[in-house]
Design a protein around this nucleic acid. Structure first.
Length: 275
DNA sequence: CAAAGCTCCTGACCGC
DNA sequence: TGCGGTCAGGAGCTTT
């Protein structure tokens, strides 16, 4: 379930492997992802040099000049495998796309559930529909005031509002739970009922949670690569996510972590200290 | 327009 | 051991 920290970790891993290198071939094993890979995908990428990488929300943009960018989203189960020129690699069952770089580095996009996206665009990537109504980057100039103003006229519950990528980019089910816990805000609160102070707290908590997770991703990245060469999943100790029945981690709280379902998704929270 | 509901997909897990 | 059922969830689409 890649959210912002996992995507950022993947992007950092890709950085040294492919930036400033030319793509010499593109192998596409299947086109029928949930959003199909365009027919001209391979043609558009072959021969191009990746100038830089950008992350926006849960997307990674491979920038190859003003006229070509590739846009990657890992969906639910997407992974990137980086295979160095001297390494052997057995193609995985769900490796849908494999890029070969000029130095022999392979980049495999594996995605069993096929919820991911990989496509090219022929103009300014910021104009792509994925980014048109996307909210602010949480780690860049996201303020409590901005969140407060956005939530003020939202009738939905705060948990669901934070999952909406138009409100803020990059949060998913796990980090929304974690951020609400850290901010001590109950997930069933109506978004429009949050005070300015609570919005400020929620923004600060979100930033802290995301930064810590990125840090954890970065530190475990090397160990993970040693074992199977893949990138993107890390060890991060969740306070509430998937912790149903555990005692609240707050030393002054003796509550128990509960699980409820909101809009069809699990929410984990402490019913005692999140109010 | 917002909000809620449904859908896509496979692998992991559980109970029998 | 196998088998059926359930669950996981990002985002696009449809419905209300």
């Amino acid at each position: 379930m890649p959210e912002l920290p996992e995507v950022e970790t993947v992007k950092r891993g890709l950085e040294s492997a492919i930036v400033k290198k030319r793509i010499v071939s593109v192998r596409i094993n299947r086109y029928d992802l949930r959003v199909p890979i365009p027919d001209d995908f391979g043609q558009n990428l072959t021969g191009k040099t990746i100038e830089n990488l950008k992350r926006r929300g849960k997307y990674i943009v491979l920038f190859m000049g003003e006229k070509t960018s590739a846009i990657l989203h890992l969906g639910m189960s997407g992974r990137i495998h980086i295979i160095h020129p001297d390494e052997d690699y057995i193609t995985q069952k769900h490796d849908h796309v494999i890029l070969t770089m000029e130095d022999g580095t392979l980049v495999a996009f594996e995605d069993p559930r096929r919820f991911g996206m990989f496509y090219t665009i022929a103009n300014d990537w910021t104009k792509d529909r994925a980014f048109l109504s996307m909210g602010p980057e949480p780690l860049e100039n996201w303020s409590g005031n901005d969140l407060y103003k956005k939530l003020k006229h939202k009738k939905t519950i705060v948990k669901t509002a934070l999952l909406d990528q138009r409100v803020v980019a990059g949060l998913g089910n796990i980090y929304v739970c974690e951020a609400l816990y850290m901010a001590k805000i109950h997930p069933e609160r109506r978004a429009c009922d949050l005070s300015k102070e609570e919005a400020v707290r929620l923004v600060e908590a979100s930033k802290t949670v995301l930064l810590r997770a990125i840090e954890a991703g970065g530190s475990t990245l090397k160990d993970y690569k040693k074992t199977d060469g893949s990138l993107g999943y890390f060890q991060y100790q969740f306070s509430v996510y998937d912790q149903e029945g555990h005692t609240c981690r707050d030393q002054y709280c003796d509550g128990t972590i509960e699980r409820i379902v909101q809009a069809g998704r699990s929410t984990f929270y402490c019913a005692r200290c999140q109010v």
